[in-house]
Amino acid sequence: MAQLFAYITYKDGVADDSALELIEAAKKIDAGADVTAVVTGSGGDLDTVCNEMAASYKEVIKIDNEALAYPNAEVVRKALLNVLPADGIILITHDTFGMDLSPGLSIKMGSTFVADVVDFEGVDGSTLKIIRQEYGGQVTTHVNCDISAGAVINVRPGVFQPDESKGAAGGSVTDKSGDAGDLTTGRRFLEIVEAEVGDVDITKSEVLVSVGRGIEDEDNIEVAEELAEAMGADVSCSRPIVDQKWLEKSRQVGTSGQTVKPKVYMAMGISGSFQHMGGIKGAPFIVAVNKNPKAPIFQLADVGIVEDILDFMPELTEKIKGM
């Protein structure tokens, strides 16, 4: 079995939740394997994270270079290429950084790439057995992946639950900064532009009426607003609603939008993609209304209703108003 690596992402010296999830993912590939954490960056934050990771990973590789101070995937790719063995199995979180880094990394490594993995069913010879979803989670597939020349595997964040009894690995940190090589690239990081603040802060809302593509038309947004008003809730939405400019970006729930923590979340005509559900925290009571009885959201919600939201919402509004 090839060596397993986990690339660690962090911000302001604090490792992402996924840093420990990758250990659990690796265990599903090979229960006995020792996974090596790989941390890149520059200066104090990097050292803090390396030490934090040594509590959970037996081995930590540190790559320190000023060019890595901001995790520009193009630069990180070059560093990893020079430091890691080509036939290794490299686990990376499937977020906006992993999506940027991994496909190209696999090509440069000459290894195999699989995106957005939700589960593993072990290794059979040189075949890694993987489970993925397609069509926004509507169907699931078994995938066989030839890992004889190594692999880059992007793991969906949030699916592998980290072991709570962490912190006893007593790992050591190895400095491989000297191997990073030339890190000049054709893409240079400039700055981060923070998301705009909108009229309503949905991250503070206790009850959300959230609309998805099932709302069908801009004029129907009003129907959701009326329901929200009757309930004393705020209106939020999925990404396609913002893409069409029917609601402001600040109303978007999901990984590339806001993270909300309401008591009650009403998902109206939302299919339940992981990027949307990833923005809902704090285990709220989720009510899903969807006309497709097989919509993935019904696996994730507490209460499901198979109805057309354009008929259902006005009726619900009327009843609540009449109470």
Partner: peptide, 26 residues
Amino acid sequence: GAEMLEGDTDEIIDKLIELLKAKGGL
């Protein structure tokens, strides 16, 4: 998975309102 509310729309709405009241949704 979710507890599916069934019946005619009126019944579903009544059940839902009860649940929403209990969960602080109204």
